[in-house]
Amino acid sequence: MLSNSDLIPGIYNFCDSWCERCRLTSRCRSFQMQQQVATDQPVDTNASLVDQLTEALNMTKRYIEKLQSENPSLLVNGPSEAEQQTLEEQVLIRRHRTKEHPVATLASVYLQQTGAWLRDERRLLELAGRQQLQQVNLGLRTEDQAMVQLTALKNAYEQIKWYRTLIPVKTMATLRALDEPTNDEYLLDYYNGKAKLVLVSIDRSIASWQTILYYYPEKLDGMLDMLAGLNRLTSQLEALFPTARAFKRPGLD
């Protein structure tokens, strides 16, 4: 079993959750716990479980402290029924504002657009494989050349599929910072890390679209709106979180 010194604290907070492609799973507490559960191995509750929950508890503690500083009466008596209802209403209002934010809308539109594109292009890899096989049989290219193109297309297609769902979810998580302004360094790092994750996911998505365009330039018209949306999303996120690009995610940057 890994010692705490071998693990990268909090790496799972800012990753894209694509464990099968990650080179750092052996140093991720979250992945180790998932593997233990999947194989019915005993979990060391004195170490791994506590470490796994510490991050979430720290976030909760800081949020409670923020609420208490804004509502001193909570320190003494706890919330009354009316205060509890008010707090719940505030949470709902914040969630609605986050969902309706222009940046969240851009991310949601991208999810819908890519869903339609993937349905239309569901046979892209199959047709590319047949095309490359035909060219190899005709002696127009070597097997190695064909494999380079097919591998690049497969990676691009898979990345588009993966990040299309991650981008809107993590964008929503990032935008919570706007409704919960804070000077707490821990929380500031947390939200900057989430914003960095979204920006990196967008970068990889754009690179994947460019790969497909390199081999199929005739498909540009069907991609223009998605590429434009990703560029707008990048610009607006960078404006909202100007230090996110510089943030160093533990183990990832």
Results as ranks from 00 to 15, higher is better:
Pro79Gln: 12
Arg245Ile: 07
Leu92Phe: 11
Thr151Met: 12
Lys61Ala: 03
Glu158Phe: 05
Gly193Val: 06
Ala195Ile: 04
Arg123Ala: 12
Leu49Tyr: 02
Val198Thr: 05
Arg29Tyr: 00
Gln236Leu: 10
Met1Leu: 11
Ala239Trp: 03
Arg27Asp: 01
Gly129Tyr: 11
Gln68Asn: 08
Ala246Thr: 11
Asp221Gln: 12
Trp18Thr: 07
Gln159Trp: 07
Leu224Ser: 09
Pro72Gly: 03
Gln135Met: 15
Asp184Ser: 05
Leu187Pro: 10
Glu143Ser: 08
Leu227Asn: 11
Thr54Ser: 14
Asp144Gln: 13
Ile212Val: 15
Pro72Ala: 01
Asn71Trp: 01
Gly78Val: 04
Ala195Phe: 08
Ser5His: 14
Leu53Cys: 04
Val198Ile: 06
Ile206Thr: 10
Asp184Gln: 04
Lys161Gly: 03
Gln41Ala: 14
Ser108Trp: 09
Asn4Ala: 10
Leu124Asp: 05
Arg245Asp: 10
Leu49Asn: 07
Thr142Glu: 06
Leu252Met: 10
Tyr191Gln: 05
Cys15Thr: 02
Gln35Tyr: 04
Lys248Ile: 05
Gln34Asn: 07
Cys22Asp: 07
Val103Met: 10
Gln41Arg: 12
Cys28Lys: 03
Arg164Gly: 01
Leu2Met: 09
Gln90Phe: 04
His101Lys: 04
Asp179Pro: 00
His96Leu: 09
Pro168Val: 04
Thr25Met: 06
Pro242Thr: 05
Ala104Asp: 04
Arg29Val: 14
Trp209Thr: 03
Glu126Ile: 15
Asp184Ala: 05
Lys219Asn: 08
Glu218Thr: 08
Arg97Val: 00
Gln85Thr: 13
Ser235Thr: 11
Leu111Val: 01
Pro9Phe: 02
Asp203Ile: 00
Asp120Met: 13
Asp225Met: 10
Val200Cys: 03
Thr151Ala: 12
Gln113Tyr: 08
Gln131Met: 11
Ser208Leu: 06
Tyr110His: 13
Val37Glu: 07
Leu153Glu: 01
Leu125Tyr: 07
Thr151Tyr: 10
Arg94Glu: 08
Val76Leu: 14
Asp184Lys: 01
Leu138Ile: 03
Gln36Phe: 02
Arg27Ile: 00
Gln90Asn: 13
Ala173Lys: 08
Lys248Phe: 04
Tyr63Asn: 09
Asp189Thr: 05
Asn4Gly: 02
Val91Asp: 06
Pro72His: 01
